[in-house]
Structures are given as C-alpha cells and as structure tokens.
Design a protein around this nucleic acid. Sequence first.
DNA 1: CAAATTTTTCCATGTTATTCCATATATGCC
DNA 2: GGCATATATGGAATAACATGGAAAAATTTG
Lengths: 154, 154
Amino acid sequence: MERFVSSYVKKVDSKGRVSVPPPFRAILQRAGDEQIYSQLALETPSVMAGGAALLKMLESRMNEIDPFSQDYDDWAAHFYSGSDYLKIDGDGRIVVTDAIREYTGIDGEVVFAGRGISFHLWQPARFEDYMTGVRKRIAKKRELPKREEGALNE
Amino acid sequence: MERFVSSYVKKVDSKGRVSVPPPFRAILQRAGDEQIYSQLALETPSVMAGGAALLKMLESRMNEIDPFSQDYDDWAAHFYSGSDYLKIDGDGRIVVTDAIREYTGIDGEVVFAGRGISFHLWQPARFEDYMTGVRKRIAKKRELPKREEGALNE
DNA sequence: CAAATTTTTCCATGTTATTCCATATATGCC
DNA sequence: GGCATATATGGAATAACATGGAAAAATTTG
C-alpha cells in the first residue's frame, strides 16, 4: 500500500481553503478517495487524516470494543463527533473547519505531515516543537540499550 | 448504513426552531425518515436522536427484557415517556421542545454531534467539556496496555 | 362557540459555502 | 536555459443554506 511520506507547509486562504500536497493528492486519487477522513488527534493538538484505508483500519479497531460499555461510548463520541469528511474540490483543495482550527491552532499556514497510512495536520510552530521532542525521545532511548555497542552513525 | 459524523453548531430562534445540519438531513432523507426520534440520554445531559434505524435498534434492545420485570417498567417509562418525534419541516428545521431545553440546558445554540447510527443534541459549553473528558479518558487508557510496544500516534 | 393563543407552513431575504475561472508561480523536461 | 506542463492562489459567479417574519391552520380557553 502507498504511504504518506514527508511534510509540506501550505497556506490557508481567507476562506479556509488549502491545496493538498500533490503527492498526497495523488495517493488519494489512485485509491479512489474523493474525500479525506479526518479525526482530532488524541495525544497532540493535531488532526489525523487519510483515505478510506485509514477509516477502515480505525473502524476495525473500534469494533473490538463491547458496544454496551462505557468505553465504547467514549470511542463513539471521539470517533464520530470528532471527525469530518473533507471534500477535495476541483482544484485539489480542502477547507479546514472551525473545529480543526480551534483544536490545532491552525491559522494562516498548515503542515501536512506524512504518517504512513495517514497524515497529520499541524500548526507549523507546534509541529516543529513536536518533532524536536520526538527526536529527543528517540535519541534518549537509543542511548542506553543500543548506542554503547552499536553503530555510531546509522 | 450511513453514519452521522462530525459536529455542527446551530442557532435556535425565538420559536425554538433549528435547522438540521444538511449532512444529517440528507442521511435521514435518503433513509425515508420525515421525523427525528429523540430520547433523553441516560448518561449525559443531552438528547439522543436519529431515524427509524435508531428506533429499531433501541426497541430490539428493550425487547430482550422480561416484560413483567421492574426493569421493563423503568425502561418503558424512560423509553416512551422520555421520547419525542421531531418533525422536519419544509425548510429542514425542527423545534426543540421545552422538555429538551430543560434537560439539556439548550438555549440559544445547540450542537448536533454525530454518533454513528444516532446523533446527540447538546448545549455547546457542556458538549465541549464532555469531549475534553472523553479524549482524556481514552488517552489515559491507551497509556497502559499498548503504548510501550505499539504505534506512537495512530 | 367564539376569541385568543400557539403552532405550523409558507415565503422573502441575507448570508455562507461551493464551484468555476483567470492569473501567477513553480516545476519538470528537453 | 527555455519551453511546456502542473500547481498555487485569489476572486467572481453560482448555488445552497440560514433565518426571520407573515399568513394560515390548529389548538386551547373562556
């Protein structure tokens, strides 16, 4: 399956329109997706997005939960209320909703960050901070178990 | 089956009229529903609503209870006395009843929150609080079992 | 039963969202 | 490096929608 790779910064115009990075657009198009499924991310002030493949993956995960549990209620709320279908228009653009803006802080520019089967939407500054943290955490982990004896530059 | 997805904020006019979000309206229309079945929610100060599919699901659940039990009496009371059919008028609007206002605190604006087979009506501020709680609970649960070995943010 | 009140339907208007188009910019290709 | 194609971007035209009020119908009340 094709993967969303790399990060792109895009401008948001006064009407909230953003053009989807062509590589991402191409992947969606080849998969037959005319809409982008989006969901507010749980751990970060960002939005997870992707095509039907992502949606399917998420749904199958949710279906493992007992439908009459409190747990399920929470997931259903998050899953359905916190989601959106963003239609890709004739010019390859989507519109970021108010809910997305508020949750992410997106306002003149947005980062499309590839994540494999999905990609995330970020406010640029927050994305940079997040990536810095990510790299630090990874480096730290590797220091102890591996680094001492392992490859120095890989 | 089509699902109610996303959340929409709508204004309530002085007569209690609210226009149903077009995406929800479209789903109901395609299913042939001209009325919205609504029921006071048990766990939260909101109203659960939906079309005939929802009603059918709820009824089948209730039919599993012994009709001569105390349990059944309670359910029947809740189910029938705490429900309403909200007619969708020619302009795609419904009227929120006094019972709904009192139970939910809805008063100038209302949130339509998608929930899959149903959607919920909320007073906006309360909905925001609720969703924040939902996300916290989910994130917390995920910390323990999976996070160490699993995907980082998907 | 008539009057008053509420509810519902109908209609007009303003607003918002979507689509379409034109231009500028960038990218890839030869 | 220059040409052809693709993309970004803003604005204008169009369509969809929200919203308030008036008219009509139904309901309640005295």
